[in-house]
Design a protein around this nucleic acid. Structure first.
Lengths: 220, 220
DNA sequence: CACTGTCCGTGACTTTTGTCATAGAATGAA
DNA sequence: TTCATTCTATGACAAAAGTCACGGACAGTG
């Protein structure tokens, strides 16, 4: 994916003037990460505008005892860590590459700021973008506080593109997204299969009873 | 609290030009709520700018089976539901008055929009305000996903102003903020007392071992 | 093809949370 | 004061989630 393709796919830049995107393209550079390599740590200053070009990144928070909560998995065209970019604070999360040779396009914050001040209409797009994320966070919070693991896992399965798919991640990683541990994911998947709502062949899942899963995902 | 006092205390308006605040003051009206009365429901269009003048409001989400998660309790000077105000979407939460005669100052969204467009510098303040909320949400999410009830309750106690205080709410309400049920709050408070970290005399709590509570709040 | 590292599945528990039912405070209005 | 309502406390369980330990599948490497 080229820089310009990437910029066009980022929510708050897609309607930006051509010239703004061009300026950003010129002001940034590409960084390549090895698998597992950290892009930024929590509580460090914003690196600037970050957009995934190839590969994928996970954005997560760790707790004191090392358990991880994955907030997002970023694929090409996704911009990472907009919050500290916009408010100038530190990163509230950390991010690391999930795949070898993950390529990230980066515009350092000072350059980004000066381009932004040239195109103030981008401020509104930024606001909209934060708002979308905030709505997502509210849903996650509600699910964590009020729903069971089964419910959150059902939602995870329903979020997959098609009705039949191969689990794109390890149970460990799914657990970190759903907010539980490896073993519980394994058991809960088999439980959903026993209930007849999905079939589970190796790592391939077919959603058999979508309506039932949706009910579970909604909290019974 | 007067309208102007209230406007001055709202984060994203406190540095606004005098004239902007004056225009808002004129464009809005005051609404009085009875205890328990709903101000807005989830999934309804934004009512506009809302600022508590007297009394208090709770902002919450309900799940399918009626359990409640309280996201914020708004006191005088606090603006409610900024997210739908800024992005034009529906309310992601509902809000209702906690006290009799809660008074809310309201500027309908069209009027707010037109004032906002006259003072575009307010856009940045709005962005900052959303960013602050988003950081708070991320912390709540982490606590819900990775910490125990004991940990979240410890954090709740530590957030109180002084070391000795009377619980300002019922166990039911604390439970809805902490993400659990009434009985568990009762038991966990007594457990913390048994551990010697707090004392519990009626509804009065004294924090005895702040360091220990902080450790618990951080997730052990 | 053995060896290593990573991942999955599972039994056997333990701990944490949630539910139900019931008995007493506490509060406030009549 | 008396009564009704609202809260709190608690026992007895039930259910959900987490921990530990181990066996086995599988992929990649030398």
């Amino acid at each position: 994916m080229t820089r310009d393709d990437a910029l066009r796919r980022v929510g708050f830049l897609k309607d930006a003037p051509e010239a703004a995107r061009l300026a950003l393209t010129k002001a940034g550079h590409v960084q390549t990460l090895r698998e597992g390599e950290l892009l930024f740590l929590e509580a460090t200053p914003s690196l600037g505008l970050l957009i995934v070009l190839e590969g994928s990144l996970k954005e997560s928070k760790l707790d004191a005892r090392g358990r991880e909560l994955i907030l997002a998995i970023h694929k090409p065209g996704s911009s990472v860590a907009e919050l500290p970019l916009f408010d100038g604070g530190n990163h509230p999360t950390q991010a690391s590459a999930l795949t070898e040779n993950t390529r990230v396009f980066r515009v350092p914050r000072p350059a980004f700021e000066s381009i932004l001040s040239t195109y103030p209409e981008l401020g509104w797009a930024a606001l909209r973008s934060l708002a979308i994320q905030q709505r997502k966070l509210l849903e996650m919070l509600k699910a964590q506080a009020l729903h069971t693991v089964r419910s959150r896992l059902a939602a995870y399965l329903l979020a997959q593109k098609s009705a039949t798919f191969s689990l794109p991640e390890t149970n460990e990683s799914i657990a970190a997204q759903v907010g539980t541990v490896r073993e519980v994911i394994s058991r809960t998947l088999h439980q959903l299969a026993d209930l007849g709502y999905i079939t589970l062949t190796g790592r391939t899942i077919a959603i058999v009873n979508r309506a039932a899963l949706e009910k579970i995902a909604a909290g019974e």
